[in-house]
């Protein structure tokens, strides 16, 4: 449905997006994630036709939008949901949703689906942030776009509201059956809403895959760090296992690994994959801990000098300075990266 090929965008010589290539299937939700300034919003605005790329092609439903002259935004059937909502301040909810919609049934449908019935005649400035964003979503969907583009739709909202609303938005998109590209810098949001993630860093694509794959087998240190917490611990490959200060573990290698070069690796260990047992001498000492509500985070210093994070159930509390045995409690293979 959407095909981005070698897309390049730059602002007065400064490259913002470099050689981006992604395919998005019909009805799929792709989350475009990365830290601020990684080029994700630029890519989105280029799909909408709001900025002109310096190279590459964007095909919408097989139709080229860059070659043969820029296709203007209004000819692309892309709906966009903005971070600042962009509701027309002089029009009420109904007129915002119905802006240029020929079939009034569509307006009614999305107003009721998104629970906006009682605000039909309300002006945008009287609505709360969450209501505004639902109006913006209804407006986009009522126009039956081929592709829905969401630019950080939840970043101006309260934390509590975000979680509710992201589920609502995902359901609405799935019901409409529309192809969606959802830009966010919030990794948790991305993992929750997406069918697939595209993780970007400094204008380049780092990895495209399902949320599970991206989280469990990140293909780069950047992706590993960006999605969730975790630390790297040094180890050696020996007889099909990796040997570290924590013991011996099954492993998988990242694609960039050149197997011939060395058997020195670093493995990624997430904090919930580590267990601690009070034991002297053990292999580590507790150097810090913090209560987090459901869990209690312990930082332990291994005798090799490396630090690890362990999230234990909140009732488990190991005092500062206690000797412990740290071990990997996860059963899945750990991801091994070439030593930095």
């Amino acid at each position: 449905m959407l095909s981005i090929q070698n897309l390049n965008i730059s602002y007065s010589e400064l490259p913002a997006v470099r050689d981006l290539t992604i395919e998005v299937g019909k009805g799929e939700i792709l989350a475009l994630v990365g830290p601020t300034g990684c080029g994700k919003s630029s890519a989105l605005r280029a799909i909408a036709g709001l900025i002109e790329p310096i190279g590459g092609e964007i095909l919408i439903d097989g139709k080229a939008t860059v070659a043969n002259g820029m296709l203007p935004p209004e000819k692309r059937s892309t709906g966009m949901v903005f971070q600042d909502f962009a509701l027309f301040p002089h029009l009420n909810v109904e007129s915002n949703v119905g802006f240029r919609v020929k079939n009034p049934k569509l307006v009614d449908k999305w107003i009721s689906k998104l629970g906006l019935e009682e605000f039909r005649k309300a002006m945008p400035e009287t609505l709360s942030g969450g209501q505004k964003q639902r109006v913006a979503l209804a407006r986009s969907l009522a126009h039956e776009p081929k592709i829905l583009l969401l630019d950080e739709p939840l970043s101006n909202l309260d934390a509590a509201l975000k979680i509710d609303l992201r589920v609502q938005i995902r359901e609405a998109i799935k019901e409409a059956g529309v192809t969606a590209v959802w830009v966010t810098h919030d990794q948790e949001e991305a993992l929750t809403i997406a069918d697939r993630l595209a993780i970007m860093n400094k204008g380049k694509l780092e990895q495209v895959d399902t949320p599970e794959k991206c989280y469990e087998s990140p293909q780069s240190r950047f992706v590993a760090n960006f999605l969730g917490d975790g630390r790297f611990v040094g180890g050696k490959i020996k007889e099909g296992f990796v040997q570290t200060a924590l013991g011996q573990h099954p492993y998988i290698q990242v694609d960039t690994f050149e197997s011939s070069s060395t058997n020195e690796v670093e493995i990624l260990i997430r904090s919930h994959d580590i267990g601690l047992q009070i034991k002297s001498p053990g292999n580590a000492i507790i150097i810090a801990q913090a209560y987090e509500g459901e869990t209690r985070r312990h930082v332990a210093k291994l005798d090799t000098g490396e630090s690890i994070d362990a999230r234990l159930p909140h009732e488990d509390q190991i005092p500062f300075g206690t000797r412990v045995q740290a071990y990997v409690k996860a059963n899945h293979p750990l991801v091994a990266f070439p030593k930095a």
Partner: peptide, 18 residues
């Protein structure tokens, strides 16, 4: 200034000509 940046972008992406 009342016309925030994204308002015309929104109108254009909803299919309105300039």
């Amino acid at each position: 200034d009342r016309i925030e940046n994204n308002l015309s972008a929104a109108a254009r992406s909803l299919g309105a000509s300039p």
